[in-house]
Computed example of a mutant assay.
Amino acid sequence: MLRRGQVEHVRAERNLLAEVDNNCIVKLYCSFQDNEYLYLIMEYQPGGDMMTLLMRKDTLTDEEAKFYVAETVLAIESIHKHNYVHRDIKPDNLLLDRYGHLRLSDFGLCKPLDCSTLEEKDFTNVDNASNSTGEGNSSAPKRTQQEQLQHWQKNRRTLVSSHSYYYCLLCIISGR
């Protein structure tokens, strides 16, 4: 970890696993180290991963797809509630327990999100804000969808780094 500069990644993973206790993510039972290695003792998931399931089944039924998408959303939400962003969502990191329920794993690229830097104005749709107050003729100029997108793209890196702006998109979609 030291040679590869992975200390922060491992620390973020251990911190998230120690902090978040939710049935949608794998459980960390304990962690320790010796002179050479760091050990994270985690819950065993005998169902394999989503990638293996997709390769084996080739195509999921509509009901199965809805089930796994819903469980993925719940897993992502469980870490977002603790202000972490996963940044590596892929079928290999979606594990299945013995009953076929999904557990999110591999938090090596996760980042804590500093919500104190987020401001309501970053997420408010100008059109909706002026209409909700009953003042149709607000002094603030109204932005087109293209202008709103450009504003978002310009400012998203100030909110969080890398791909974690998807968290902010999820907040907008869910109305948080």
Rank of each mutant, 00 (worst) to 15 (best):
A18T: 13
E19Q: 15
C24L: 03
C24V: 00
V26N: 00
K27S: 05
Y29L: 10
Y29I: 08
S31M: 06
F32W: 00
Q33C: 01
N35A: 09
E36R: 13
Y37K: 11
L38E: 00
L38P: 00
L40D: 00
I41T: 06
I41R: 03
Y44I: 05
P46N: 08
G47E: 04
G47T: 06
G48M: 08
D49K: 01
M50T: 03
M50E: 02
M51W: 11
T52N: 10
T52L: 09
T52Q: 15
L53G: 02
L53W: 00
L54R: 06
M55H: 13
M55K: 15
R56C: 08
D58T: 14
T59R: 15
T61P: 07
D62A: 11
D62T: 11
D62V: 13
D62R: 08
D62P: 09
E64D: 14
E64G: 03
F67G: 02
V69Q: 04
E71Q: 12
E71A: 01
T72R: 02
E77W: 05
I79G: 01
I79M: 06
H80T: 04
K81Y: 07
Y84N: 03
V85S: 15
V85R: 08
H86V: 00
D88C: 04
K90N: 12
P91S: 07
D92M: 04
D92R: 12
D92I: 05
L94K: 05
L94R: 01
L95C: 03
L96M: 06
D97T: 08
R98G: 15
Y99D: 14
G100T: 12
R103N: 08
R103T: 05
R103W: 02
R103M: 03
R103S: 02
L104H: 10
L104V: 07
S105E: 09
S105T: 15
S105H: 09
D106I: 03
L109S: 12
L109M: 09
C110Q: 03
C110M: 06
K111E: 14
K111T: 13
P112N: 15
P112A: 14
L113E: 06
D114E: 14
D114A: 12
C115F: 14
S116L: 09
S116D: 07
T117V: 14
T117M: 09
T117P: 00
L118N: 02
E119K: 15
E120R: 10
E120K: 09
D122C: 10
T124W: 11
V126S: 09
D127Y: 15
D127Q: 11
D127A: 11
N128H: 11
N128P: 00
A129I: 02
A129M: 07
S130T: 11
N131S: 13
S132G: 05
G134F: 00
G134H: 03
E135K: 08
E135T: 05
E135D: 09
G136K: 12
